[in-house]
Write a protein that binds this DNA or RNA. Structure first.
Lengths: 194, 194
DNA sequence: CTGGACATGTAATATGTTACATGATTGC
DNA sequence: GCAATCATGTAACATATTACATGTCCAG
């Protein structure tokens, strides 16, 4: 059910179409949440049906229209309620750690290759996260900028600081993963020779 | 589809019933993988149908029987193939970071309370992980012990070291989460006063 | 006038959760 | 004999993935 709240969170910044949201979910916001089109559009419809969102038909070009969604009072209330409700701890289900625990079933070269892939992935993530963090610090991040334009300085400060805080967590996590991967290379070298 | 491989991984140690597996998934192995009964039993049946597992009816008490599953050659081959195949990077979908990015929508006391809960959760996890790690180091961990009893010293060393490596990753992750939570308390104190 | 971005979905499948259901065995 | 544990599921629902389908608009 968190998809709902991720959608509301995004829409608190500015009204958006399903397409806008979809793009956000595969670009900068993707670090915090991701969902494919096929999940977004039906969920937006359900949320409108449930009164959490309102939509306005906006002209698009000559004949086309698009639906811009914005959060209703009920939606905002539901979001606040979720924000204040306790978090159910996530259950562990991460294939990476499962694999690592059984690396002895794989060829050491195959293991090295997988570690390299993971390393490349996390290095790229880390770079993106730090880049995005910088746009939060200077307040140029588009979604954030849209949101804080409607707030006073104190409120804006809070919004910005918490977003930076979230990114600091993601960055720390990425660094931890990279450290662990580095240890993995060292372990294989030790067990099989370089 | 990783559930399949998690099940095979467990069964490489020793033959088990669905119930045994279910218990493992909610005790020590839960750090690496978790699944409820209702997912385990049907999946075991499907895996037997697909030839990855074999089952033997074992007497249990006077009239009862239970099904002990063991991995077939085909199952082991499938496991090795999965172990050597590249990992598709996980997409981010973590409600904790989503919430953190929007903490300004919640009352600071509610935020503190959630941080306290997260802290308690991760501290408990960390303790369990370190405890389990110790049973890997001295080779008293039941699943591991069953597995290495069938291996020579070199193979046992590999199996043990990789499992410790996986737990080191989980422990590092838990510590990183705890650090981040600590920063969260500091941030709220700074923004609202202690 | 064409390709890429914009826009909105459906369908089928896979995976995961919650609740319910049932019975045997073992230890006290 | 009674409670806790062992044992094995089904059913309904919720969520997520993959593949497909269709059409508009805008820039070059």
């Amino acid at each position: 059910m968190s998809l709902r709240y991720a959608l509301i969170a995004l829409l608190t910044g500015r009204p958006m179409t399903g397409y806008d949201i979809s793009k956000s979910f595969s670009r900068s916001v993707a670090h915090v949440w991701h969902a494919p089109d096929s999940q977004i559009y039906p969920e937006l419809n359900r949320m409108e049906r449930d009164g959490l969102l309102d939509s306005v038909e906006v002209p698009w070009g000559k004949r086309g229209t698009k639906k811009e969604y914005h959060v209703t009072e009920a939606g905002l209330a539901a979001f606040r309620e979720w924000m204040e409700s306790p978090l159910v701890p996530q259950r562990q289900r991460d294939p990476v750690y499962l694999k690592a625990a059984y690396f002895d079933f794989a060829d050491p070269e195959a293991v090295r290759e997988q570690l390299r892939q993971q390393q490349a992935y996390w290095e790229e993530q880390l770079a993106l996260l730090e880049q995005t963090r910088a746009t939060l610090v200077d307040r140029s991040h588009p979604t954030l900028a849209a949101r804080i334009s409607k707030l006073n300085e104190r409120e804006a400060e809070l919004a910005v600081r918490y977003k930076i805080y979230a990114y600091d967590g993601l960055i720390a996590r990425a660094r931890t993963e990279l450290e662990w991967i580095k240890d993995g290379f060292a372990l294989i070298d030790e067990l099989y020779g370089p």
